[in-house]
Amino acid sequence: MTAEREAIIRVENFTAAYNGQVVLEDVNFEVFTGEIFFILGSSGSGKSTLLKHMIGLYQPAVGRIFIEGHDIAAAQGDERLQLLRTFGVMYQSGALFGSMTLLENVSLPLEEFTDLPPDAIRLIALMKLKQVGLESYGDLMPSELSGGMQKRGAIARAMALDPRVLFLDELSAGLDPVTSAELDELVLRLSRSLKITFVVVTHELPSIFAIADRIIMLDKQVKGIAAMGKPEELRDHSDNPRVRQFFSRKPAPDI
């Protein structure tokens, strides 16, 4: 892990606001190629807001967000389509389409965006399902899958077009410790073998210490980044008591 690496995502002077109410102010950071990057923070600190701006669903109030050097908010037409294909997103509740089987869900982007023949699409979709351990469940409907399987299925769908970046929103929220440990394992494996860059939003401490290369912690009061770095260093050496408190999971100290 060298410090000087190519930045795949760059967030510059980014300010987010809803109806004039500023949620995040002047945020700057970079995500390097191939790393597992965590965005954390307590509820209401703007994690999901930041993520939704990074994937181009919302326009930043001020500032710019670059993915592979392209401004996601300014991209239009074909450039935007190309840019959208460089990343995949797993939404909080999976967002698998309920009217399609799991295999059809994974095949959908391949059918829409490539000229691969049907047997190729089927094979690729099965391979993606194999990577998340769901290869025997392709013909089931999403409603017949458990919560953890739905999330894994959503990761498979996000990977269908072999994106370079995967955004995972609330990776292990609402899952049991065993399932979330399995998902952590999956992310680590995909990151090491496929060299995918991961941007994960979560507040699950075990996940953070298990797989995060680098994290940023958002804070409601500063409306921005309270801390950035490796999780162990922040836990042990941060000069911000609120950050140490978050990592050690202790109630507010009496000062």
């Binding site: 391979m127 194999k130 025997s136 013909d139 073998s193 496929l194």
Partner: peptide, 18 residues
């Protein structure tokens, strides 16, 4: 990547589907 996505016996996998 090739080893990672080895599906094993594809026919057996097909028969596992509904």
């Amino acid at each position: 990547l090739l080893q990672e996505s080895d599906l094993g016996d594809l026919e057996q996998l097909e028969s596992q589907q509904r």
